[in-house]
Design a protein around this nucleic acid. Structure first.
Lengths: 220, 220
DNA sequence: ACGTTACCTTACAATTCTGTAAGGAAGAAC
DNA sequence: GTTCTTCCTTACAGAATTGTAAGGTAACGT
């Protein structure tokens, strides 16, 4: 995931960026408010999450946020603010921030909040892995540009796996997430997996089994 | 908006509930953890936002949260927790909470956070008409609380109609939006409509035909 | 190596979905 | 009214999906 960190304290910025990189994200940092505003004032800035300090040189964080929300209501923004500045936080949330963190904060907490925001964002984005795409608006899969018509059970299975791209999903979880409220035969999921694999053959997407942990989609 | 406040301190609960009611929300309160878990462990609890104290009698707030997320990944949950219990907050966020507030907190801040969560929720609102609901996360329909399993063609037809709730959708549009890239028989859509109607019979949702303009969902 | 467990594959019958066609009903236009 | 058009309903055969069972394979622990 691509994160943009806007923070004028260079030391803090580097520390945070490192922590987030360890979590597997690509992090860009900016020190200057005006620059940030410029970069965020067109819709395709390409970021998945903005971390924004409110106290910036040249242009306050609130202004940056306002500029961001003017052209992009979707990308989540997490505000970093000095403890006690409640007013600012309230203003920030009402301006369209999704969350804030009061300095000083525990790094664990930062990570947890970033995870929470990215998880939520992942819910609405159209899911993609390799040439396999799930358009959440049209409710349809495409594979290599072609529509992929799946029976309901396989569709739910695949959608669930795509929602958890990168991590293996075990059968119990699949049963409760993808087939909630439906009766499932003994080895039903294994059979669905098998049938899905047949459809995904000759594509760049493979349904790996992670023994003991579940199934996982990977693009080769 | 309907809020559920789960907080064992009766005095605090009433204060908060009053504040939120002043903002125009309908607030229900619960004191007991076990009761809360029970009420939230089926998907159609009907709440728009859960405010959850972690320190509850009989059943911890984290358990309540886990039970909620088991059957409903959608409804935002805001955790209320004692200041300093960072561990709990991190756990809560990773369990699927959307936000937390450390006690004691300013009422302004509570209001701002509730607004932020409800605003966000409105963005990815699930489609609803009468008791018919389309959960865009789970990719599933429910009708009167029951899952409604539809064949792919009927599912696309219904999803398309729900996306245009209120306006009639004509056959050409249905063909291109719901069945893009698929060959359609002469009167195929009429047949699908007929089959869908059979399934929606005995519900509060009707599929009206607006002669010359298309089909339209209405809740009676 | 052995047994155990988890997972794979296959096959088949039962069910459900799909396309097509044909005839009927209802509204609009004349 | 009549005619035309649009939409409804029904039925049926072909196709696809689903549940189930049975036997196979591969990884794992001891």
């Amino acid at each position: 995931m691509k994160l943009l960190l806007i923070e004028d304290d260079a030391l803090l910025a580097e520390t945070l960026a490192d922590v987030l990189r360890l979590e597997g994200h690509r992090v860009t940092t900016l020190q200057d408010g005006r620059e940030a505003r410029q970069q965020l004032s067109h819709a395709d800035h390409g970021q998945d999450l903005i971390l924004l300090d409110l106290n910036l040189p040249h242009c306050s964080g609130l202004e940056v946020l306002a500029a961001l929300r003017q052209c992009d209501a979707k990308t989540p923004a997490l505000i970093l603010t000095a403890r006690g500045a409640i007013e600012d936080r309230v203003k920030g949330l009402d301006l369209g921030a999704d969350d804030y963190l009061a300095k000083p904060f525990a790094l664990d907490e930062l990570e947890a909040r970033v995870r929470a925001l990215l998880r939520r964002q992942a819910r609405d984005a159209s899911l993609q892995i390799g040439t396999l795409n799930f358009d959440s608006l049209a409710q349809r899969f495409t594979l290599g540009g072609e529509y992929l018509n799946l029976p309901p059970r396989e569709q739910r299975l695949l959608a669930c796996l795509m929602r958890h791209t990168g991590e293996p999903v075990d059968k119990v979880r699949l049963a409760s997430e993808a087939f909630a409220g439906e009766s499932l035969g003994d080895n039903a999921i294994e059979v669905y997996v098998h049938r899905l694999r047949r459809r995904l053959a000759n594509s760049d997407v493979t349904l790996h089994t992670v023994r003991g942990l579940g199934y996982q989609l990977v693009s080769s």
